[in-house]
């Protein structure tokens, strides 16, 4: 009993608690959902899209643009790995505090019995500017060495105005059998963000053949401007295997222009450019398809309609 009293007295004298300003500094350096997630304007539901389709003119609805939202969801799914981790870090105080490091764990991995997890966030400085180094690691059953599942470097004291990168190490995740599903990527997925100026960008690269998140291999890049404009570079593939590479530019209300390159499955060495614009209701308002590969004009040799006058003013060039 005496030793317990002594320990309690020593603890009181030394102080207890999580009252840490440096914890806040570490927290502010972590990217947030706001920082990373892709947000696309436009119809938010199928019902709204259907109504738009009914009201669209002869060029019809901008189906490719409507599919961009699904692509964005895939990108966000990839980002969700890191976002879940950083959200967790904001709710649980560190297990260990050091001058330039915080450690959470090790904790038992409840989804994967026998595994242990830990997160480390360290800090280095280049001049006054800090860089935070992130490690989400797993220790397999039976010991061995800690393996990094997610790593990242966050440059700047404030992630909302910083830049950085995160790498999802799916090769290690799959090696350890920690992948959520067979559809997870088969290669490491790098993510970069830069919010130091305009445009603010987030990119997620699916390496060739890696798949995952419902995405085909492509360096998906989302850019945004303070006035609500944005750009989303993405790729999709239809059931026939035709590959559509999009550079979609859009206004705050969702009107936009897509510059698309189509790579037909039948002839991988060929490509066909086309451009189209749409309004806030996701109806095509102009098209420039010299080979009418999209057949927006029906069975015609070429399809140039209302071009570029039908595009949002900002995107007529």
């Amino acid at each position: 009993m005496r030793w317990a009293t002594s320990i309690a007295a020593a603890a009181l004298l030394a102080g207890c608690g999580n009252y840490s300003t440096e914890d806040l500094e570490f927290a502010e350096a972590l990217p947030t959902r706001e920082t990373l997630q892709v947000r696309l304007p436009g119809p938010v539901s199928q019902g709204a899209a259907a109504q738009a389709a009914v009201a669209c003119g002869s060029l019809g609805e901008a189906t490719g643009w409507l599919q961009a939202r699904a692509i964005g969801v895939g990108v966000n799914a990839g980002l969700d790995w890191i976002l879940r981790v950083v959200d967790y870090l904001r709710t649980v105080e560190p297990t260990r505090r050091e001058r330039n490091a915080r450690t959470w764990g090790p904790f038992p991995d409840e989804k994967h019995p026998g595994f242990q997890s830990r997160i480390r966030l360290t800090r280095t400085f280049q001049g006054e500017e800090p860089t935070y180094h992130f490690f989400f690691e797993s220790l397999p059953p039976g010991g061995g060495r800690w393996r990094a599942l997610i790593t990242g470097d966050f440059v700047g004291a404030y992630a909302a105005r910083g830049r950085g990168n995160v790498t999802l190490h799916f090769t290690v995740i799959r090696e350890l059998g920690l992948n959520d599903s067979a559809s997870d990527p088969t290669a490491d997925v790098p993510i970069d963000y830069d919010r130091t100026g305009e445009p603010r960008t987030v990119s997620l690269t699916i390496p060739a053949g890696a798949g995952g998140f419902g995405l085909i291999d492509f360096p998906y890049t989302w850019s945004s401007y303070a006035d609500g404009r944005g750009q989303f570079d993405f790729a999709r593939q239809d059931a026939a295997g035709n590959r559509f590479v999009w550079q979609a530019r859009f206004t705050a209300d969702g009107a936009g222009r897509g510059d698309i390159t189509i790579y037909p499955a039948s002839n991988p060495s060929a490509s066909y450019p086309l451009s189209a614009c749409w309004d806030a209701g996701a109806c095509y308002t102009a098209a420039s398809d010299l080979f009418n590969v999209a057949q927006l004009c029906g069975p015609a040799a070429t399809c140039v309609v209302n071009w570029p006058a039908g595009c949002p003013t900002a995107f007529q060039q």
Partner: peptide, 11 residues
């Protein structure tokens, strides 16, 4: 709201 409250006690 995302920042948790902090506390500290001592003698």
């Amino acid at each position: 709201a995302e920042l948790r409250s902090q506390y500290f006690f001592t003698v």
